[in-house]
Nucleic acid binder design. Structure first.
Lengths: 205, 205
DNA sequence: CAAGAATTGGACTGATCGGTCCACTCTAAA
DNA sequence: TTTAGAGTGGACCGATCAGTCCAATTCTTG
């Protein structure tokens, strides 16, 4: 039933629908977003939607893939270039500045989707777990670089530390979104940085 | 329009409705929970609901108050007795064990509500910001005790640290819920503990 | 240009949503 | 025993939901 677009035109239509759905879901959540709203936003019709997606769940999973690609890929590029504490903190500042610019709306689309879907849509939950996994993997690559350069102790578990940093980012974003205060994110990130620094080899402390 | 129950019977009915709503919302979220489901669960009728609540939003806010009382009060009792690193870590272990026992469902009801409602229901957002605030306040009281006892440096900003710990807990719960792996929460809590320890006065390091 | 496939428009359906309404029962005080 | 107000039951409403269906259009290819 679910079909992949076979022409360029179809591909663009599918893309338009997913992008519109992603935008609306980011703001109002999955349950609160109606298919008719999505189609109005995308300028498409019901038959177009159901031509490319089996049902709403399939569309939601496409949105997850879209958001994952957008965020994780964007973050990866930035993370690759970080190789010092100052560089890490500059990235943290970017995150805080972005939230401030957005007036602390949205937060992290992946995180929001995870909070809403983890207990109600098993397939989506697995997709999101994978998204977090690749994100954590990129953080881990960065931390491996830190370790190589002697910024972290040689016995540091970079995988665990990566998940710890990811958790702190997600929690900070949630608090910032709820209190509408980007400072909450900044404080969380400072704690994440402080934790990592506490993992530095003894002489550097 | 919204009325407070004036008899014992009414009070119990209202309570039953809120408790049922809290239970369902905790599992499926606000948007996915229908009023009819709530009433079926509570064994009540539509007129009873609308006798005590102006609309669904009012019920949701009552649920927020209920969950806040349940969680924050429960946590406060525990936090009061913590006055050492070992005690703190024992509490962390309790949190992880609870998630493990729950198979990583639910997570934190306040956090889930915040993720879903922060951008769509301003009144609820403010309620939830307050809930986080009182929770952070209790953590802060605990950290003040740590500072008094010399476990934290005398210039430690306990308010900020409290929010950092809260953020890490929330993020850890989200990751644990999404990956169904309580280990993710444990790692986050270890990081929170590590950060706090890095704030200890120099001689204790 | 002909034909088959891919794509599109949108009316339609049954279920469910939040919310209204009114007649009814219960309780306690006069 | 009357009565007034608190509490209750559930039928009902218009709106909206996800999803179906089919005829019309556009594109590709021979």
């Amino acid at each position: 039933m679910p079909e992949e677009p076979k022409t360029e035109r179809g591909r663009r239509t599918r893309e338009r629908i997913v992008a519109s759905a992603a935008k609306l879901i980011e703001r109002r959540g999955v349950e609160a977003t109606g298919l008719d709203q999505v189609l109005a936003e995308a300028g498409a019709s019901k038959s177009q939607l159901y031509h490319y997606f089996a049902d709403k769940q399939a569309l939601v999973r496409a949105v997850i893939a879209w958001q994952t690609a957008a965020i994780v890929d964007g973050v990866a590029e930035r993370l690759e270039r970080i190789d010092s504490w100052a560089g890490l903190e500059a990235w943290f500042d970017t995150l805080v500045a972005y939230q401030q610019a957005m007036d602390c709306h949205v937060g992290c689309p992946i995180g929001s989707l995870a909070a809403e879907l983890a207990d109600t849509d098993e397939a989506a939950r697995q997709d999101l777990a994978l998204s977090f996994g690749t994100w954590a993997g990129q953080l881990r690559t960065m931390l491996d670089r830190f370790r190589e350069r002697g910024l972290l102790g040689p016995d540091t578990d970079t995988e665990q530390s990566a998940y710890a940093v990811l958790a702190t980012i997600q929690g900070g974003l949630l608090l910032a979104k709820t209190t509408r205060d980007p400072e909450r994110l900044r404080i969380a990130l400072i704690a994440a940085g402080g934790y990592l620094r506490s993992l530095a080899p003894a002489p550097e402390r």
